[in-house]
Simulated assay, not measured.
Amino acid sequence: MELEIAQSTPTAASIATLVQAHYDLGQVVESEFLRRSFNQVYRLGFASGRRVVARLCAERPRGGPNTLFEAAALEHWARLGCRVARCLPAASGEFAVHVPLAEGRRALMLFEHLDGEATGDSAEDIEALARGLAALHRAGESYQGLDSIYRLDLDYLLLMPLLGLLRAPTMTAELRPQFEQLGQRLHDDILALGDLSHVLCHGDAHGSNNFVVPDAEGQREAVFFDFDEAGPGYLAYELAVYPWSLYPRAPDVPASDKTKAQWRRFISAYREVRPVTGADLAAIARFMAVRQFWLLGEYAGRIPVWGSQAIPTDYLRRQVSMLRTWETLELPL
């Protein structure tokens, strides 16, 4: 009997061997498995002293990785002076090497290695993140490269994740209609806000997918990586990811004065670089709830790999309470 494999985890040494065979970067002398999340990420060091990050892309609820668009968008941003970790081509010129594994072929991508520290709580770090994100959006306005497979619209961010969540084995007959109603109200509320702005999104800019480093003048600036979720989408969603990461994601837990001050500093610094319309500002709090639906859908889609207790029933019950609270959430400006 042959067992079906949900997802393999290659060792760092095997990834190093693969990269050495497919990339003209010389001998790999060190390798490290960094993390297993939606993808598997490795750090490699070469005899030349160069370091890179390797990402073994996984199938997601949305489908396969957006490799060609991601590489093209990163090159565009870098060409316009944005600090991003570009994708490195293999010796063949391709931006992904397809690795045969027990579950099927998966794409391996290499990226420039960045040094620095994740965004901290200081005013300088928060402002650097906001300014850097605004610069990405401004540069993205002139992007004319390959199309993205995915668009960060309400189907992608809300409706498809909701469907996946409703099929989760830990979902109950009691909770299912409550999530359906919450999702539908959220969808209708956002449509009622009218036309909202769109940008070329990073897609996951919560402050830990960038480092903050000193520039040539000693000022703090953000350098960005992990563009797996990049694509054209709502500006309000992109801006919602940071406060979503700050605000308590639990029912009946109010945001602290510190959290509110961090959010104010972030949105103020962003607006100093790039304007935000009143409709987009009003939509940000609603898109925080959209972000939570997206995350729940991602967890539901990873059950074959992570197990059903990644989203146990008691956790889902708390999510209903939290999402109801967030229906009236207002962000301070």
Rank of each mutant, 00 (worst) to 15 (best):
L281E: 10
V290T: 08
E298L: 15
S14T: 13
E298N: 08
Y315C: 06
L166G: 04
S92D: 14
A240R: 06
Y299S: 10
P214V: 05
M171V: 08
G164N: 11
G301S: 05
H202Y: 03
Q319D: 08
E2G: 05
A279M: 07
S148F: 03
S321N: 08
E330I: 07
Y150W: 02
E330C: 11
W77A: 09
S256C: 13
P169F: 11
L186W: 02
A118D: 08
G301I: 05
S37K: 13
G81F: 02
L323A: 00
G45D: 13
R265P: 00
R220F: 01
T11M: 03
F95K: 07
L152Q: 09
V273M: 14
F266A: 01
E112L: 07
S8G: 05
L34V: 15
A90F: 09
R60S: 11
P254S: 11
Y234I: 06
A128V: 03
Y242D: 01
A255V: 08
A173L: 10
M109H: 00
S148E: 04
R35E: 09
T11E: 11
V223T: 15
A13K: 09
Q20N: 06
D155W: 11
L316D: 02
R185G: 09
P169W: 14
E221Y: 01
L333G: 10
A13W: 07
P248G: 11
L108T: 06
A240G: 07
S208E: 14
L191E: 09
A310I: 15
T170H: 06
G278D: 12
M160I: 13
R151K: 14
Y150R: 12
R62E: 14
R324Y: 00
P275H: 00
P89I: 01
W306S: 14
P248E: 12
D252S: 15
L101M: 12
T172P: 12
T259N: 08
H198G: 09
L154C: 04
I149V: 07
R271F: 02
L163G: 12
E217H: 13
Q319L: 02
P169M: 03
A85P: 03
G278F: 04
L295N: 10
F179Q: 07
T11N: 02
G93I: 12
L186Y: 02
V99P: 05
F227N: 05
I15A: 06
R291C: 01
T17I: 09
D252P: 01
Q319A: 11
A310V: 14
V241N: 01
P232V: 03
A289E: 00
I284P: 00
E59V: 04
R324M: 08
C87D: 05
A21Y: 06
Q181M: 11
I284A: 00
R249H: 14
E75Q: 14
D204V: 01
E75Y: 04
Q181K: 13
T325G: 14
T67I: 14
L186F: 03
A16C: 09
A96C: 12
P100D: 04
I15K: 02
E124D: 15
G194P: 12
G207Q: 07
T313P: 00
R50F: 08
A269H: 05
L152A: 13
L3F: 09
R265D: 03
R60A: 12
G45A: 11
A168Q: 07
A71G: 10
L162W: 07
W244V: 00
E32C: 10
P312Q: 11
